[in-house]
């Protein structure tokens, strides 16, 4: 008898061999955000190993996958060289697809979206625009109010965006990837 379909699905989408994890916990021991996570990385790997729907749902609707910083401390030390950050990337995609989003994901997704909007429009990051757009997305207008003026004074904030010349290429890249319904959007 082989592993369940769920486990081999995970493997075929990510190349990460979930069953190789022998639950030593070294990833968790060194993860800087393990204590903030619903399930620390090794626990999350175990939930995936069971291959059951309820456990997969637990993972998708947890905050763990959103809090992971992709810092790769876990991968760097894992005796079995299991690429947990890569698995996290995939799990985030799935969580969005299945709309099982933990509340902690909201500000993080909002930030990413604002960031990408900026690139799409100008080809580069427009930090002022990013922060404003993020504030609209999260309705958190007070955040960062204190540092913005000093940033401006120290010459760290442009009032106007820098734009690249070939902005059409950005439209094309976004159009064919993240805005293309066929690709794996997160």
């Amino acid at each position: 008898m082989g592993h369940t379909n769920k486990v081999s699905d995970l493997q075929s989408h990510t190349g990460v061999e979930v069953m190789r994890c022998y639950q030593c916990g070294k990833c968790t021991a060194g993860c800087v955000l393990a204590s903030e996570m619903n399930y620390p990385p090794s626990y999350l790997m175990r939930l995936l190993q069971t291959g059951t729907k309820p456990n997969l749902d637990k993972v998708l609707s947890s905050n763990s996958i959103w809090l992971c910083l992709n810092c790769e401390n876990c991968l760097g030390r894992c005796p079995m060289e299991i690429d947990i950050p890569k698995m996290m990337d995939y799990l985030r995609t799935q969580a969005i697809k299945e709309n099982k989003l933990h509340p902690d994901s909201k500000p993080i997704i909002a930030f990413h979206k604002s960031f990408l909007d900026s690139i799409k429009n100008t080809g580069r990051l427009y930090e002022m625009g990013l922060v404003l757009s993020y504030k609209f997305r999260t309705f958190n207008f007070l955040q960062d109010l204190s540092i913005a003026p000093s940033m401006y004074l120290k010459g760290k904030l442009h009032l106007l965006p820098e734009k690249i010349k070939d902005r059409r290429s950005m439209k094309r890249i976004f159009g064919q990837t993240i805005e293309n319904a066929k690709t794996d959007n997160k």
Binding site: C24, G25, K26, T28, A29, G30, S35, P40, Y43
Partner: peptide, 27 residues
């Protein structure tokens, strides 16, 4: 039960960062 992620020295002590996997992965 758990592996140690790292050991470093501070003020003459060796700080051992481990985990208890039997407590759900408590550091």
């Amino acid at each position: 039960r758990g592996r140690v992620a790292r050991v470093y020295e501070k003020n003459g002590k060796l700080i051992v960062k481990g985990v208890d996997t039997l407590l759900g992965g408590e550091q």
